[in-house]
Nucleic acid binder design. Structure first.
Lengths: 337, 337
DNA sequence: TTGAAAGCGCTAACAC
DNA sequence: GTGTTAGCGCTTTCAA
């Protein structure tokens, strides 16, 4: 490996002059600048960042831990974070925890050991476990998509998202609802549910227990939609707490010959790309992932400056995206009730 | 930040003893070991990897550049690479080039500047541009999914994949084929096409130009399937060079009321998860991404040891996955011809 | 404008 | 088994 000394020798100057040239911290005369640049090109010199950061005490690197990069929801956030970090001359070290708490801890330790300047994290596990982690860490951490109370977080407003879905369905005249829920111990899912059910109840309707089916956040859970339809008074509208589940339900409905939205309306959550391949395409609640990512890195930079680990949670508002899978209650369906 | 000196002072030993304890390079007596560990815990000491790698001349870090982590095809490869690297005690720095050649170069420079020990790369752009890049680089690079001639690469065998698709369709009695192709200047797509068309021709049938539609690797391209069906002698089987395109075609067919596979058979490529949500589910050519990822890091480790940049290309065999979207030519369809 | 020298946190010889 | 010392590649005073 060629070093700054090699370059200096070749250009006939001192290492510190090369350093000055590279960092722009002090002016170097045009002729020497030229000689230095030539030496760099000839030698193919690439500065050693490890050595540099050992001196300057920062790495211009951010850590980012996500549960699963192959999840399109997360990968869109990742893309934005990458993008805005890069514009600020920061590199991001992206790590996939695989939803495994132990691995997550070890990744965090690794990041800290690399001396990243700050950390962005979509955590896995219980939110309360993270306040100690965040306060102990030698670098600021801001949480994304899943809030940690008392620590700077930026998430979307799931409660409002749930309300939005309910309001849309209620506006279409629906009064009997079914719910297909992902892991209900996940905070975000809980909040969507609370928002949805709360809004429905405010309008004087209720959602009885057998109308709520919960499972994993998979296509499989969606397929259990038939259970809902077999009820004595089947729902005319179904809320799935995420699009994957909605897609599973949609497929099952297609197999069963149940028409969407004529026989039953279906609404998802997240607005992943695949919601647009179904026929009809899926009405859903969209989360502004790009905005969430952007705000998250802004918050992190602020935390890095102020050295403040604690902080508020920022809520990014969700929005209703009406497509073809929801419609007014049909006379027939209404007659059944 | 607490350093190894702080720990040493607290434990009443020399820094080198702490180092010995940490690395296990030399034995330390149980009592001192205990005192050192206590000091570490009390101080919350985390070793500085930058400083360490400055000494030891390696970082135990691998670089990985992919065009788009949100693409489920790539993200599965990434997951495997992460996984096997981790077991070998290596950290991977994952970078998303966004399919942008300029950004790709800058990421590579960055990785080199970080002094990663080796680089894995799914490149964007023309393969020939990469041989210089790989030979100039101070660290070994192995290419994944997209081969670079003369440089160590591990890819799946797209030519055979195309053949497999054709053979399956031919075996079902099809003789008139349509093709929906992604960017045909991408090597992998070209090879799939060559394999498919070659096999068809070997059986004495031809695929005329109007039967081949090419565009981007998007749902949109798939939707142009109606052009194929409007031909004077429409195909009874359609090969899409990837699953996204196939999904687009499937949706369009559904809208048009064309039955799959009764009226037309449809086969995709890649075996992404979404091929299983359609009705019927999609017959496709599966690539063993996990195996590709595994072999790639193995190849990289070998290259890191031998310091050999040049090398062969390893081909991972694809396999046919028969599901519901392909079937025998119907009498009706056959009668039309 | 340029150079000499010290030191970031760590490890590896080597001496004790 | 443990301590001393030098030095990895870089930046940053401070002098010249």
């Amino acid at each position: 490996m060629t070093t700054i000394k090699d370059v200096a020798r070749r250009a006939g100057v001192a290492p510190s002059t090369v350093s000055n040239y590279l960092t722009g911290n002090a002016r170097v005369s045009p002729p020497t600048a030229k000689r230095i640049q030539e030496a760099i090109d000839e030698l193919g010199y690439i500065p050693n960042r490890a050595a540099r950061s050992l001196r300057v005490k920062h790495t211009n690197t951010l850590g980012l831990i996500v549960p699963d990069i192959s999840n399109p929801f997360f990968s869109e956030i990742v893309r934005t974070i990458n993008h805005v970090s890069q514009r600020m001359e920061y590199t991001v070290m992206l790590c996939d925890s695989g939803g495994d708490g132990t691995r997550e801890k070890s990744l965090l330790a690794n990041l800290l050991s690399q001396r990243v300047d700050g950390i962005l994290m979509i955590h896995t596990g219980h939110r309360d476990d993270y306040v100690e982690l965040a306060t102990q860490a030698s670098r600021p951490i801001v949480f994304v998509d899943r809030a940690v109370e008392g620590i700077r977080s930026v998430v979307t407003d799931n409660y409002t998202g749930g309300k939005l879905a309910a309001r849309h369905l209620l506006g279409l005249g629906h009064t009997r609802f079914g719910i297909l829920a992902g892991n209900t111990h996940v905070r975000n899912v809980q909040e969507r549910l609370e928002g949805f059910i709360g809004e429905v109840e405010e309008h004087g309707y209720a959602i009885e227990p057998p109308c709520i089916i919960s499972g994993e956040q998979t296509l499989e859970t969606g397929r259990e939609v038939d259970l809902l339809l077999k009820l004595r008074r089947p729902p005319t509208a179904i809320f799935a707490t995420n699009d994957i589940i909605a897609l599973g339900a949609w497929r099952k409905l297609l197999e069963m010959g149940v028409r969407v939205p004529e026989d039953v309306s279906l609404i998802g959550y997240d607005n992943i790309e695949m919601t647009q391949i179904t026929v009809p395409d899926l009405t859903t609640i969209g989360q502004d992932k790009a905005e969430m990512g952007r705000q998250a890195v802004l918050a992190l930079f602020e935390a890095m400056e102020t050295k403040q680990v604690t902080g508020e949670t920022t809520y990014i508002p969700p929005r209703l995206i009406v497509r073809g899978s929801t419609g007014p209650v049909e006379e027939t369906a209404a007659a059944q009730g």
